[in-house]
Design a protein around this nucleic acid. Sequence first.
DNA 1: TATTGTTATACTCTATAACTATA
DNA 2: TATAGTTATAGAGTATAACAATA
Lengths: 161, 161
Amino acid sequence: MPKKSNNLAIDEPLDTSTGCMPTKLDALVGYALRRAQLKVFQHLVSNLNKFDLRPAQFTALAIIEQYPGLMQADLANILAIEPPQAVVLLNKLEARSLAVRVRCKPDRRSYGIFLSKAGENLLKELKEVARLSDEESTAALTAEERDQLVALLHKVYLPEA
Amino acid sequence: MPKKSNNLAIDEPLDTSTGCMPTKLDALVGYALRRAQLKVFQHLVSNLNKFDLRPAQFTALAIIEQYPGLMQADLANILAIEPPQAVVLLNKLEARSLAVRVRCKPDRRSYGIFLSKAGENLLKELKEVARLSDEESTAALTAEERDQLVALLHKVYLPEA
DNA sequence: TATTGTTATACTCTATAACTATA
DNA sequence: TATAGTTATAGAGTATAACAATA
């Protein structure tokens, strides 16, 4: 019979030191998504620390490259953040001369946002860092499984499909 | 030839109103994970709002059910939060009489944490809510794809495997 | 001296309302 | 009046240091 070491409902003390305990919640998509996202995200955060950048700042640079001249409101929409957050984010990028706001001629309320040459160069490097960080934090997957995972995730969050 | 409507690098204004813009970043696992997680998580948040509960509180209830009598430090470890966060979380659960702290006889510094009968009953309901929320927010997936996704996510964040 | 839980604190992220300047 | 951007502020979530009680 099992030994009884104390008066609690569990006889064996839990060993929660291994970093990640499997629970019954793992069957939920939302729970599994959260745990996996947290791991991959934190790995990227530590890789971007060397550049004194946050993931959202890297994302913003990539979006500005893809849509040069876009307005702040569009950047906020694509990043899924509120306009006030876009302001502080852009302030930091502009203070580091990675991006610039250019007053729009036809509508002088808005700006066109562009990457600086320095921003372009840094982004090129960051993309490789992100790709590598991705592979490292999902090293348990084969390349094929990684593609499968990304395809399934797209089905979840991209419209139409 | 394409019409030129302004002096920006893009000729056509962006339509970012559709909720989610595809970008080149979608090829990154981390980015896709984040977007999908955000969508599924926010759906759960709005479903749990009816119960005035946050996802972490639901998770805590489920973990306490699985490991009745566990210590606060273990709960913190499994939830991947810091001990001070576990304190406020448990304070709220205890204030609503969903969980209880019981002083541990052999080591009077620690508590054993248990669900109340009300906590057990509520958790039963919450599990169904979470399962349904999961299915709704991943309605673009077949049941088989959902299982595939969960299996791939486990490979990413669970040890050994 | 070390450990469990706690308090206090701070820093980030997020969300909202109110303001400005243009339209 | 409506819109683009901004400011101010408040609420979560998260992390650390310092403390009390117990071992």
